[in-house]
């Protein structure tokens, strides 16, 4: 079914063994929008992202990227090129430099020549403020720098949207700021983003829409300001304030 949305998710279900983790999730994302998914651990937030690019194939439901149904697509790797993914544990290739991490997708997947790939890699590293680390290996970078390389790698593929799976959760608190700043810039530049995070400050100030999930269902979604100040559900209020207490609002 064709849609005008960039990404559309319809009645998504997923289970691990007996345990149903997603019980019918539907929402959509338009071009240039940033949506943030929040909710307690184990609610299936990351599963949604993994379902979208079929790193974990969903059990039921349909997902569309523009007019293409991802869930039934034959060549999933062609769709994955169009959807960036930023991992909680960075997922950097340890045998390659920062530059090499970005170039390998360009040369092996996009079949770009080496020189072009290198130029683009340096451009993207510059965009996340890491041009001078182009020749560093992952083990020589801090967590925040690694994650920025991860973002640059996703950006270089020129995706239609980027999925962020708890991008700051494995970082020391003092390193989350640099990553969130890069993400904030991307949102302002009009990148379409779907973000799973516990960073309430980021959610509140950057998201066009906040999606609050619990136990495999969307409890409430809407304008973040409304969800923070005047939510329809008492549970939304409790959770958001609990997290704000825990993680703070700031991103320095």
């Amino acid at each position: 079914m064709p849609t005008k949305h960039l990404l559309k998710i319809e009645d998504l279900h997923h289970s691990f063994g007996e345990e149903e983790v997603l019980k019918g999730i539907s929402f959509s994302l338009d071009k240039g929008e940033t949506k943030v998914i929040v909710g307690p651990s184990g609610t299936g937030k990351s599963t949604i992202l993994n379902n979208i690019i079929r790193l974990v194939p969903p059990k039921k439901g349909k997902i569309y990227l523009e007019d293409t149904e991802i869930t039934s697509a034959k060549k999933i790797n062609e769709i994955r090129q169009q959807i960036g993914f930023v991992f909680q544990d960075f997922g950097l290739f340890n045998h390659l430099t920062a530059k090499g991490n970005i170039m390998i997708g360009l040369t092996k997947v996009k079949k770009m020549n080496k020189k072009e790939a290198e130029d683009l890699a340096l451009l993207e590293l510059d965009r996340v403020g890491l041009k001078e680390y182009a020749d560093s290996y992952p083990s020589q970078l801090s967590g925040g720098q690694k994650q920025r390389v991860g973002i640059a790698r996703a950006l270089a593929m020129q995706p239609k949207l980027i999925l962020f799976d708890e991008p700051t959760s494995s970082l020391d608190p003092e390193l989350t700021g640099e990553v969130l700043k890069v993400m904030r810039n991307l949102a302002e530049e009009g990148m379409t983003m779907l973000v799973v995070t516990h960073e309430m400050g980021f959610a509140r100030s950057v998201a066009d829409e906040l999606i609050f999930m619990e136990a495999g269902k969307i409890v409430e979604q809407g304008n973040p300001e409304k969800l923070f100040t005047d939510p329809d559900h008492q549970r939304t209020r409790e959770f958001l304030f609990q997290l704000t207490d825990l993680y703070g609002e700031g991103e320095n």
Binding site: R80, Q81, F85, F87, G91, L92, F93, G105, K110
Partner: peptide
């Protein structure tokens, strides 16, 4: 594991 997942996320096939 995570590196192979990351490789697939940028559009590589499993074999690549």
């Amino acid at each position: 594991g995570s590196q192979l997942k990351a490789a697939q996320s940028i559009g590589m096939t499993k074999w690549q």
